[in-house]
Design a binder for these strands. Structure first.
Lengths: 344, 344
DNA sequence: TTGAAAGCGCTACCAA
DNA sequence: TTGGTAGCGCTTTCAA
């Protein structure tokens, strides 16, 4: 079976292709009679225009290219879901590509998609790109009139819309939350010191400690790059040399769970003797024992916001608005790894 | 800036578009001189053909449509990763759509993508579709010459390639593994009894129990549909009324963790007094305490296999091979929720 | 009210 | 060795 085209319909009614085209668009140019019969027929056989032809003609594909470093990451999966949902709502499709944090992959993918495959991009930049700060490929895409919205890991040098969370603020709030719940010695642990996300979080930690009127104790801070989760526990050990430590802000769920495990092994009760807040609200948090209190980045919202910003630009290229950076607020989701402060 | 086209290059050298086209393809028809200068120039300005035009002309898009029920699921994310990787390797793109387990969404998406957007599909069918067994939309796609490969949740009535795991066998092996590690009373717990995956697992459990020469004790079996993980614990309680239960096969990680939690609350040591094997190897397993022994479905391999099968059909439509169902073998990944049997 | 023609960017056939 | 033309499926302008 072959897909039916305008030509086929035209032949069927002995009219021209243009007549059919207009009729299907409900143009007043065409007599109601022919319009109706053509429409009815098209409906009946479930006619759908060839999207490639449309893309070629209209110079727009109604598809969004998405680049993410990874897919096996709950936060990113949430964002993808938010994007997909919003895209579909506006009748856009998404093509998703994984950079694996490789700069070259990122360049290749952008090149591949920049040739009539997509109308714009939503990107969380690759680690290598974040480090090298080489942003030519992004600027090329922009020059070809392919707008970009970056989220979470963004390239500050690039002029485009961005969606981020205020991680510094989030770090500060986490400290304050722990303090309010009664923690006296609050530490910080990150396994991804190379990422801006983590650096901001650390700044927020400093802010928090200062706002408590305490001074920074470097012994309570671990800020490293540790790639494999099996090494988290040994990474954290030093923090527990100070037996008085009673709270830790962890840069990700895995680190938070490792911290709880060590604390438990040392006979501490959670949250009575030891509390921890993990950064980003993933699946681990919900299933750990005790369940983990986290900072939620609202991934789905971020995705939706990014998609809305991009689609807005695509649908209304005429109003060349200033590039905006949208902050999505974070929330602390209280579970059982911290004492509740709600009762205050 | 505008994307440069063949026309632009042709103008630049005062030759025709067809000359440029041929030159870039390295056709012997064109003199080496012009060929070289055109190629060099195209290279220099980084010329890339418009993919829409190519798709329209060639009637193939080099893109694969993927339909999955969900995205926030580690197993599916693994499969997606496997597909994406393989696709890119063969120079295909993927467009990913989420059905949210809705039959109608599934139909809409397939219709939307069937109009020149993709060359074929890779699908894990929606729960509603699995229940209703209405497969017209799949057959329509096939009729339009859009091959389908289904994975994991497959529609048996549809004539297409499939990639599955032998879940029955996996269930049996899990029972045997527990028995070999010393468990005497092995139960079964599923929160998704409506899915074939789970039903097969249960059959495997029966097989396993029988092969041990034991008889089925219905009190040791929970086979239900429970949507929210917060209800897993209450779902499992009845199993523990028989205090002698010392092993459970769980249909997913969440259920397995809940089982461990209850056992621990009852003062059982894991794995000494109580063991559990969780179905599918996700992130929870690696971070739980104790870490969970699981049956791995090898999601990435499944994805890669599905993609290979589809691309094989797309690239060689001439050899109309029989439809195949490929079994990916499962493996038990031993962690700390079971006693090791390796020492036998 | 309808249709012919041009064009989106590319390839392939045939003619020069 | 090169170029013109037709056509992929569609829209749009202009003419009939």
């Amino acid at each position: 079976m072959k897909k039916v085209t305008l030509k086929d319909i035209a032949k069927k009614f002995n009219v021209s292709v243009s007549t059919v085209s207009k009729a299907l668009k409900g143009s007043e140019e065409i007599s109601k009679a022919t319009r109706d019969k053509i429409k009815t027929y098209a409906e009946a056989i479930n006619y759908r225009p060839n999207l490639n032809a449309l893309s070629l003609k209209n110079r727009r594909t109604k598809t969004i290219g998405i680049l993410v470093p990874d897919m096996l990451n709950y936060f990113l999966a949430q964002v993808l879901k938010g994007i997909e949902k919003t895209a579909i709502k506006h009748n856009y499709k998404v093509v998703i590509c994984i950079t694996n944090d490789s700069h070259n992959r990122e360049i290749e993918i952008i090149e591949m998609l920049s040739n009539g495959s997509v109308d714009g991009f939503i990107i969380s930049i690759a680690e290598e790109t974040e480090i090298s700060k080489e942003f030519n490929h992004f600027n090329n895409a922009l020059a070809f009139n392919l707008p970009i919205v970056m989220f979470d890991r963004v390239a500050n040098g690039v002029l485009c819309d961005k969606v981020i969370t205020n991680n510094r603020k989030a770090g500060e709030q986490a400290v304050i939350n722990l303090a309010e719940s009664g923690c006296r010695k609050i530490g910080f642990a990150s396994s991804n010191s190379h990422l801006k996300v983590s650096q901001d979080l650390l700044k927020g930690y400093y802010d928090g400690i200062h706002s408590l009127g305490q001074s920074i104790d470097e012994k309570l801070i671990i800020h490293k790059k540790v790639d494999h989760y099996s090494d988290y526990e040994s990474m954290l050990e030093p923090l527990f040399e100070d037996d008085a430590i009673d709270g830790i802000i962890a840069s990700n769920e895995g680190v938070a769970l490792a911290a709880m495990k060590i604390a438990q092994q040392r006979g501490k009760l959670i949250p009575e003797d030891f509390s921890t807040i993990g950064f980003t609200n993933g699946i681990l948090a919900r299933h750990s024992n005790p369940k983990l209190t986290t900072v939620s980045q609202h991934g789905e919202l971020m995705g939706a916001a990014a998609a809305e910003m991009l689609i807005e630009r695509l649908e209304h290229p005429e109003n060349k608005k200033e590039f905006k950076t949208k902050m999505i607020k974070t929330d602390i989701v209280e579970r059982n790894s911290t004492k509740s402060v709600k009762m205050t």
